[in-house]
Each structure stands twice: as structure tokens, then as C-alpha cells.
Write a protein that binds this DNA or RNA. Structure first.
Lengths: 333, 333
DNA sequence: CATCGTTGGTACAACGTTGTAAAGCGCCGG
DNA sequence: CCGGCGCTTTACAACGTTGTACCAACGATG
């Protein structure tokens, strides 16, 4: 593997001149530049990023910390972040937190200080809070949860408003017993979506009944199915369900189907995230559609600015969303 | 950020002694060891991996090169590889190839030589071949495609046999006009699954008709839907379809539903990959279930061995699979 | 008492890169 | 002809770590 030294020897100049050519320094004699460039291609020189980073103090890596890649929303988001980071010449290190806070703490603690320039974190539960102490001094952009109390950069949609719009849509359909699936004791986004849900009911003059709010400790298909089963077994089952993500909705639809409950005729279902899976499921899923590309772009941009200027005041970016109306809420009750 | 030097100063020993303690070198006087350890925790020392790697020549990073994270199969696989790599104290760098061979070529070429210890590659189309030249000398484990001609480590299931089993299952149901969706001019796995498909038909004494083999240039839901639409529009539509992955199958099921064609009553559908999406779709999807955890584990193990001993002969690992029978092939024609 | 091996410790160089300082070169104006 | 300026190049040090070589003390052995 060729080093600057090898190239320099071949071109008959100093190591630094080669370095200057590689880094696009202006004042290099054309003759020398030519010879260096020849030597560069002849040797197939590739800069040793490790050494460069050691010198520069930057690594060219950013971490993307998220709960789980198997959740389609995160997979889609990860793909978009990968793309956006590429434009900034950043490589992305993906870290799954799963649920094991301790395990991840170690990797991030060892990676954090030296190997990454910053991190984009999609927090699960309380994690947002201990992350600050966990990686002191490393630039972080938070995704999703809008915790204003934390002095950190943040990107996300207006969860309260998005949930309100979704439930208002169900109200417009004439549904009156509207349930929610996805309440969670520690999850910030869950609290916000629940708030939007309540708001919409109040605005419509509908009662807010505890029995119609189903908790989900994870946001997987299974949890949606279980929650739906519980709701349907109640004495007065819902005629509509707002699920806090598409996976819960997919599970809910399946649980309904297994019990002969028709969607949307008997129960209308709305999801959240606009995953492609929901668009193809039967019936296709009405869902809140956050602009994921915008989220990814904003997160990377924000991180870039924070890395360039660690002192700047934290910024909160609101990305747009829309309501994608599909078959799961089309048709009459 | 504390360095060895800082710790050494605090403990009153040399830098190297601290290094020795950090690396578990045996011969350190207990007294000194104690003081170093105190200084270590007092300063919150974290080794600078960049510097360590520069010195050691290893980076602790491996690349996982795959087509697209939004494809659930790859997302699931990536999650498992992440986990398996963690046990080897490896960090995983995920690279999406999408379709742009050129763009990825650059990143890998720059990363390859210095920043990664090896790569696990899930090749799309011809990519397998040019990868050899692309990253000369870096240890590579191939996933999925079984190209015996390439002298490389490889992990995968027996695609021919898996496809044969899937189609044989459709034959057992009494279906006679069995179609395939997913033929592809350059994709190695496609060729193998097609071979298995043909084999099963021949074994059953059924004719192999070209009109029942649908090409899919990508393996997304949309492509499955389009292919299914074409098949159903034919004069003699199929009574069963074997799709080369679950996404194609999901698309096919939707296309059928949109045309009032019942699954499985009119058309039975089999997928491939056993993604969770298929298990929850309506009807739930019969599918070939490769042991993804085994694939991830084997790939990482193989890569570890190759890194430790670059000279060893290439090894091919066959991982097991099973056929997961669900509603999309349950019930009569 | 000289020698040896073991145990414990250190100084130095090196990994490949880039920032800094400085020096060489030619050219212009005075 | 000198001083100064702009361009071009170079030597050197440094980033933080670890391998090598070496030194020092020690007890045991001959």
C-alpha cells in the first residue's frame, strides 16, 4: 500500500509537496504537479484516513444511533441519512440500541470521544437524557422527540399537531369511539401523540375514555395485534383506531381480520410513518407521512453546522408532514 | 480528552507502563498497577482508536455492503450482522450500493485499503465480479450468491434446492399453472431460483412455459405488483406464483386483490426471505425461511478467520433454510 | 563473587499524515 | 545592487499509540 513517502520518492519531490497536491493546495509548480499526479496514479495511492484523522482531529465518521433496523421507519430513515451524509463526505456508523441501554453505552462511550465527529440520535424512552452525560462534548442532533428542556439540536415534526390531524380525519368520517394504540410510560413521542389524540377528541366534543387508550411497550406488529385484541374484546369496542406507528397499525389490522372485524367498515385504522409496507398492505393504510428525506437532510445539515461551530445556540427544526389517506379509512362505517 | 501521557503524569509512571496496564500486560508491580488504574478512572481515559489503529494496522471496522436498507430482508440481516460483529468487537460500517455502481466504488476504494479490516458483501448483479479488483487484498465474505468460480469465502443457502422445495409445495397443493416472478438477466440468485423452479416442475411432470416466468428488474413491491398484473392479464393466468422474495410476493398479492383475484383460492402465493412483513400480511405469506441469524454469524466468523489468516483456502458455508407454510397457500383451489 | 534469569520499568522510534516555520528562488522597484 | 515581496518547496514536529531495545534491580545459581 503506497504512502505519501513512496509517491514523493517516485516524483522526486518532498512528502509535503505530494500532500499539498493531494489536498488541492494552490501554489504548486505545474511541472511538479504533473509529476506528482503521475506518481499518484502510478502507485494507486489512497490516503490513510486513520493517519489523516489522527492529525486533523476529525474522523469523517458520524454515528447514527437508533433503536432497531428491522423497524421499517428506521430502515428508511437510515438509508436517507446514509445518502445525506455522503454528500458531506461523512461515513455513517449505525448503532442499534435495541433495548439494552448498558451495552450501547459502552460502545458509544469508547467510540464517542475519538472515532466520530458527531452523532444523530433517535432516542427511545429516557435515553435522550442520559445521552448528554454519556458523550460529553460530542456534537449530537436529536431526532423525533421534541424535548425543549434539553439544550441540543433537534429535528422532527410537530407530533401533537400530526396526531391531532390524524384523529380529526377519523372524526370527519363520523367515527365516535376512536381508540389509540401506542401509549407508553416513558416515550416522549408517545406522550405528544397522545396529547394530539386527546386534543382532537375534545375539539370534536367527544369524550376521552381511558378504556380506549391502549398501551404498547414496543412498537412492533405483535404489540399492535395484542392491543387491538384487547380493544376488540371490550364491551364497547372502538369504531376507529389511531396507531402511533405503521407497524402497530399492521398488527391491529391483522388482529381485526382474525376476528372477522372488517377494516374500514367496522373499524377504521390510521397509522403513522408512511412506510411502504402500509401502502401495500390490505387494505392500504391511511397514515401520517413525515417528510423523511427532509428529516435526514436537516439532521445532517444541523450536525455539520454544530461540528463546524460547537458554540452556536441549539436549533430546533420542524419538518413538514402530511396525511396520506388510503383504503383503511375509506368507505362508510 | 485525556491521553496516555496525562494518565502517566498523574500516576507518576511512564507512558508505556500505562499502555501496558491498559492492554493487560502481566508484569506490572501491583502498587503501580493500582495507581495507574486510579489515574485511569480519575481522568476518564478512553483510548484513541485512530491512533491505536494507525499503530496496530487494524481498524476494528468492517464494512457491510448491501443493495438497500429499505428492503426488509437486508434490514433484518444488517441488524443481525451488527449484533454478531459486536461479539468480535467489530464496528460495522454500512454501505448501500443502491444501483449506482460508480458512486459506491469510490467510497469503498477509499475506505477499503485503510479504514476497514474486511467487508461482508451482498452482491447485486455483476457486482460480485468487479469487487475482487475493486478492493484488492482486503478480506471479503460474499453473501447470497454462490459463485464457485470466485475464490472467495461465501455464505448462503442452497437457492436451487430452496426454490425447488417452494415450488414442490405448490405442486403438492394440486396447482398446475405455476408462475415465477423475479427472473433477472444478471442476478446470480435469480438464476438459481429459476433453476429450482424449473426442476420442481419437471419432477412433477408439469410443462415449463416461458409465459409463466415474469421478469423483475428490481425486487420491490411495485415490481411484484406489475409482474402479477401481467401474469393475470394473460389468456391462461396462473393458479400459483412463486416469488423470488417477499416484497415481490406482497406486491403480487396486492395486484391480485385489486383485480378481485383471491389468494389462495384463485392463486396461491409463495415468497422468499421470511420477513416479518409477510407473516403479518393478509393473507399471511408462505415463504422460504433462510436462517438469517446463522448467515450473519457465519459471515462474521468467516471474516474473522480470513482476517486472522489471509492465506487460508476460501470456504463455502451452506446455511439451513425451511419452508414456512402460511395462509397464502392454505385452502383449496 | 560472578553470572544468570526473571521481573519491572523506561526511552525511543515508528505508524502516515498535515500545520508551522522557514528557507530558496526569482522578480520588481528604488 | 539591495530590500522586499510573492511564489514554491522543504524540514521538522506533532497527533496518540505500541513494539523494540535497553536498563535496573532482584534473587538464585554456579
Amino acid at each position: 500500500m503506497a504512502t505519501l513517502k513512496d509517491v514523493a520518492a517516485l516524483a522526486g519531490v518532498s512528502v509535503k509537496t505530494v500532500s499539498n497536491v493531494v489536498n488541492g493546495y494552490a501554489f504548486v509548480k505545474p511541472e511538479n504537479r504533473r509529476r506528482v499526479e503521475e506518481a499518484l496514479t502510478a502507485t494507486g495511492y489512497r490516503p490513510n484516513l486513520g493517519a489523516r484523522n489522527l492529525r486533523r482531529g476529525r474522523t469523517g465518521f458520524v454515528a447514527l444511533v437508533l433503536p432497531e433496523l428491522v423497524v421499517p421507519y428506521f430502515a428508511e430513515l437510515a438509508g436517507l441519512v446514509l445518502g445525506a451524509a455522503q454528500e458531506h463526505e461523512w461515513n455513517v456508523l449505525i448503532e442499534q440500541t435495541l433495548g439494552t441501554r448498558d451495552g450501547e453505552r459502552d460502545t458509544l462511550a469508547s467510540l464517542g470521544p475519538h472515532m466520530i465527529d458527531g452523532a444523530i440520535v433517535s432516542p427511545e424512552a429516557l435515553q435522550a437524557h442520559d445521552f448528554g452525560e454519556l458523550a460529553p462534548g460530542i456534537p449530537v442532533v436529536m431526532l423525533g422527540e421534541h424535548s425543549v428542556d434539553l439544550p441540543m439540536d433537534h429535528v422532527g415534526i410537530d407530533n401533537v399537531e400530526a396526531a391531532r390531524a390524524a384523529v380529526a380525519h377519523l372524526v370527519d368520517l363520523g367515527r365516535t369511539r376512536i381508540a389509540a394504540i401506542g401509549a407508553h410510560p416513558h416515550r416522549g413521542t408517545a406522550a405528544q401523540r397522545l396529547e394530539g389524540y386527546r386534543k382532537a377528541l375534545v375539539e370534536a366534543g367527544l369524550p376521552v375514555r381511558d378504556g380506549l387508550v391502549a398501551t404498547a411497550l414496543n412498537y412492533h406488529r405483535r404489540d399492535g395485534a395484542e392491543a387491538m385484541a384487547r380493544l376488540l374484546a371490550a364491551p364497547e369496542p372502538p369504531d376507529a383506531v389511531f396507531c402511533f406507528n405503521d407497524l402497530l397499525a399492521v398488527g391491529a389490522v391483522r388482529a381485526a381480520a382474525e376476528r372477522g372485524v372488517r377494516v374500514p367498515a367496522d373499524v377504521a385504522v390510521v397509522g403513522f410513518d408512511n412506510t411502504e409496507e402500509g401502502a401495500y398492505s390490505l387494505p392500504s393504510l391511511t397514515t401520517v407521512a413525515p417528510d423523511k428525506a427532509a428529516i435526514a437532510r436537516a439532521a445532517v445539515d444541523l450536525l455539520r453546522r454544530r461540528v463546524d461551530d460547537p458554540g452556536r445556540p441549539p436549533q430546533h427544526v420542524r419538518t413538514p408532514f402530511s396525511l396520506e389517506v388510503r383504503d383503511s379509512t375509506r368507505g362508510d362505517a
